Computed example of a mutant assay.
Amino acid sequence: MRSARRLRSTRSRQWIGRWALGITVALLAPLAVSLSDSGGRVAAAPNPRGFDFVVDSPEMGPIRSRIFRAKDGNTNRVVYALDGMRAPETHSGWEFDTNVADALTDWNINVVMPIGGMSSFYADWNAPSSFFGAPPTGSSSGSGALNVISEGPGKSFRYAWETFINQHLRWALRDRLGFNPNRNGVFGLSMGGSGALTLAAYHPDQFSFAGSYSGYLNISAPGMREAIRMAMIDAGGYNVDSMAPPWGPQWLRMDPFVFAPMLRDHNTRLWISAGSGLPAPADGFDGNTVNGMALEALALANTRSFQLRMMSLGANNVTYSFPAAGIHSWTYWEAEVHRMIPDLSANIG
């Protein structure tokens, strides 16, 4: 009995230690948000296989997406690719920093890349972003705390991304391109990872598959709201309180840890991934690598927490991928998509 008690005590201490580490990382990660989810964006030309597709949102105005048609011309198999925290109005990182559009279309999957939504979490916000009711003024560079008073998307109007993707974009794709509006896939990185799971949980007829890479999947954990607050200030100057009041129903509705039973009950096929936070030799070792390590450690703590939650629910609809090396960078997210594609292909359309 003493031996069993000692074992339980040791395991408890180990769990508390891991949890404390996760909290510590959550509190320190805002010091590294200068990288956020950019992973070193580079200037690149648009992929010639894609074309622009503009759909009006009653709340947000015209929203542009990039569409990549399946190689075999089918309209039945569709996946949405969601960007990260710094999602600009000009392009998706998935197009400019990876080759996933080509890889997916070669697997005869149509790809939809919504453009924009910086710091939005692809959610329907409570109000336009503002601090102390001050109206925005000036332009936004997309980085830095001075952007709290700058103009930008989601400041002169209310973000309504969930509604846009589920209603306006979905049906426009069906009516104008003939795309199947049901049993689609959706995946995203970082902010887009939790956004993808939220869309799948609340719209199971639209999404039969969801993937999260380096996502923040336990946003109600101690320290997480303040970590997100600081990251959103740095990524465009957005106020998390405008998105959802603290710890209320709207905030909890966005938390994958909270709505995990819905994903199990819908039998949504999930691909959940995060890197170890350790760099590979090709990453080098500089400030960007250190930032990427800290951010990925936070994402890993969140993702492991979500894994334990799903395991406690007896969910068997999830594939977990935890590579031995991986920081918060497009290189690793691109590689993860390639690993995921066979599972995605088998569970959409």
Score class of each variant (00 low, 15 high):
Gly93Thr: 06
Gly93Ser: 05
Gly93Glu: 08
Phe96Ala: 10
Phe96Asp: 07
Asp97Trp: 04
Asp97Thr: 11
Asp97Gln: 15
Val100Ile: 13
Ala101Gly: 06
Asp102Met: 11
Asp102Phe: 10
Asp102Leu: 10
Ala103Met: 09
Ala103Pro: 00
Ala103Tyr: 13
Leu104Ala: 12
Thr105Lys: 03
Asp106Val: 01
Asp106Cys: 08
Asp106Lys: 10
Asp106Met: 06
Asp106Arg: 12
Trp107Gly: 09
Trp107Gln: 14
Asn108Tyr: 07
Ile109Thr: 05
Asn110Ser: 12
Val111Arg: 09
Val111Gln: 09
Met113Tyr: 12
Met113Thr: 11
Ile115Met: 11
Gly116Tyr: 10
Gly117His: 07
Met118Gln: 15
Ser119Pro: 04
Ser119Asp: 11
Ser120Tyr: 01
Tyr122Asn: 01
Tyr122Lys: 02
Asp124Leu: 03
Trp125His: 09
Trp125Thr: 00
Asn126Tyr: 14
Pro128Tyr: 01
Pro128Gly: 08
Ser130Met: 02
Phe131Ser: 01
Phe132His: 11
Phe132Pro: 01
Phe132Gly: 10
Phe132Cys: 10
Phe132Ile: 07
Gly133Trp: 08
Pro136Arg: 03
Pro136Ala: 04
Thr137Met: 14
Thr137Phe: 11
Gly138Ser: 01
Gly138Val: 01
Gly138Arg: 08
Ser139Gly: 13
Ser139Leu: 13
Ser139Asn: 13
Ser140Arg: 02
Ser140Glu: 05
Gly142His: 09
Ser143Asp: 12
Ala145Thr: 09
Leu146Cys: 12
Val148Lys: 08
Ile149Glu: 02
Ser150Ala: 15
Gly152Asp: 06
Pro153His: 10
Pro153Gly: 03
Gly154Pro: 09
Gly154Ser: 07
Gly154Trp: 08
Lys155Thr: 06
Lys155Phe: 08
Tyr159Lys: 01
Tyr159Val: 00
Ala160Leu: 03
Ala160Cys: 09
Trp161Val: 01
Trp161Asp: 02
Trp161Ala: 01
Glu162His: 08
Glu162Cys: 05
Thr163Ile: 00
Phe164Trp: 00
Asn166Pro: 05
Asn166Glu: 14
His168Ala: 14
Leu169Val: 08
Arg170Lys: 15
Arg170His: 14
Arg170Cys: 15
Trp171Ala: 14
Leu173Ala: 12
Leu173Thr: 04
Arg174His: 15
Arg174Glu: 15
Arg176Gly: 13
Gly178Glu: 11
Phe179Tyr: 15
Phe179Trp: 11
Phe179Thr: 02
Asn180Thr: 08
Asn182Ala: 13
Arg183His: 15
Asn184Glu: 09
Gly185Leu: 05
Val186Leu: 11
Phe187Arg: 04
Gly188Arg: 00
Gly188Pro: 03
Gly188Ile: 03
Leu189Cys: 07
Leu189Pro: 05
Ser190Lys: 05
Ser190Thr: 02
Ser190Trp: 10
Ser190Met: 04
Met191Ala: 09
Met191Val: 04
Gly192Trp: 10
Gly193Phe: 06
Gly193Thr: 07
Ser194Lys: 05
Gly195Tyr: 09
Ala196Phe: 01
Ala196Lys: 00
Leu197Gly: 04
Thr198Arg: 15
Thr198Asn: 14
Ala200Asp: 03
Ala200Tyr: 02
Ala200Lys: 06
Ala201Val: 06
Ala201Glu: 06
Ala201Phe: 08
Tyr202Leu: 05
His203Val: 02
His203Asp: 13
Pro204Ile: 03
Pro204Ser: 03
Pro204Glu: 00
Asp205Glu: 13
Asp205His: 11
Gln206Lys: 13
Phe207Arg: 02
Phe207Gln: 03
